[in-house]
Design a protein around this nucleic acid. Sequence first.
DNA 1: TCCTTTATAGCACAAACGTGCTATCATCTC
DNA 2: GAGATGATAGCACGTTTGTGCTATAAAGGA
Lengths: 196, 196
Amino acid sequence: MVDADARRTELAEAAWRVILRDGLERASVRNVAREAGLSMGSLRHYFGSQTELLAFAMGLVTERARRRVRALDLASCGPRQAAESMLSEVLPLDAERRAEAEVWLALTGKALVDPILRALRDEAYDGLRELCERSVRALVESDGAVPGLDVDLETERLYAVIDGLTVHAVIRPDLASTETVKAVLARHLAGLCRRA
Amino acid sequence: MVDADARRTELAEAAWRVILRDGLERASVRNVAREAGLSMGSLRHYFGSQTELLAFAMGLVTERARRRVRALDLASCGPRQAAESMLSEVLPLDAERRAEAEVWLALTGKALVDPILRALRDEAYDGLRELCERSVRALVESDGAVPGLDVDLETERLYAVIDGLTVHAVIRPDLASTETVKAVLARHLAGLCRRA
DNA sequence: TCCTTTATAGCACAAACGTGCTATCATCTC
DNA sequence: GAGATGATAGCACGTTTGTGCTATAAAGGA
C-alpha cells in the first residue's frame, strides 16, 4: 500500500518546482506529472482535477507555516518576543520560505478568479490577521505598549507590514534582504512598545 | 488616420476588463480582441505579440498612477500632508483604482517568470520606493519627525505598509475598506512625527 | 485618378491543454 | 491460489492558444 498523502505531497512539491521554474501557467497536469516522474494517469489517481492539485499545493504552503508557528516554544518569552518569533516564521527569511512565498503569490494571483483557491487564500489571510491581532492585543494588555493604541488599527497596520515585507522579499530579495526584513519587523514592534 | 496610441490604450483597457472578469489566463489575443470589438488580426496590427499587449497593459497602470501623483499641487502643504496626498494616489482608495491594483497584482504574478513584465514591475516598484524615500526624507529633514529615525529602515517600513495595504484592499475590500486604509496610512505617518 | 500605406479581417497550423477512458501491473484479502 | 482493490500508464477527443500568413477595405499623397 502506498501512502497516498505522502504521494500527494510529493506531487504538490513537484507543482511548486514547476511554478517556481516556469510559472503558474506551465503548471499543467502533464508538466507536473513529468516533474514528479509519474504519468498523467497516475497523477489523476490522486487528484481528480487540476484545480484539486493546485488547491492542495496551496494548502501545503499554509499548513507548513502554521506548523512552524505551532512548533514554537513561547512559554518563556514576553509578548514582544513572542510576536517577533511567530511573525518571523511567517516571513520569507530563508531561501526555502522565500520559495514558498513565491508559490503563494503566484497562486494568489489565480485566486483572484478561482473560487476554490480564493477560499483557501482567505482562510490563510484570516489566520495571519488573527496572528497579528493576538500579537497586538498581547502587547497592549501586557502594559508594555504605547498607551492609547487602537487595537484594530494597529492590527491592520502590522498585518500590512508583514504582507508588504513578504511581497518585497519575494520580488526584490536584493533590496529586502533577510536582515532588512528582520530589522523592519523589529523596528515596527519596537514602535508599539513604550521602551525602545 | 487612426490614433494608434489611443487604439492601443483601448485594447489595453479591454485586456484589463478580461483580466478582471475572467482572470489573466483568459486574457488571450482572441478574447481581448473580442472584448474590444476587434478582430485578432486587427489587434495584432497594434501589438506584435501577446507579451507586448500585456506589457502595455501593465505599463498603463503605472503610467496612470504616476500621472495622478504628478498632477498634485503640493506647493502649499507640509511634508506630512504631501506624503499623505502622494501615497493616497497610489493606494486603491476607490473602485477604479482597486480595479487597477487588481490588474497589477494579476500581472505581477506573471512577472515572477516573464522577464519583460518583470522589468516593468521592477521599474514601478523602484518608483514607489523612491516616493516613500522622498516622503521619509522630507519628514526627517523638516525637523518635525521623531528624532533618530533611520531613513532606509523607515523607507522600507513605509513601503511595506503601502504594498500590504494595497494587497489587502484588493483581496479583502470588506476588511480593508477605504476608510481603514486611509486611517492606517494616517496613523503610520503620524507615528513618524513628533506631534500626534 | 492612381498608387502606396494603413487598418481591419480572418484562415491555418502546430502545439498544449484538461479530462474521460481503458489497460496493465502490483498488492492485499480471504 | 483466486479475486478484489489500488497504482501506474497512456491514448484520444475536443478546445483553446499564439502566431504566421494572406486578403480586403479605407485613407492619403502624387
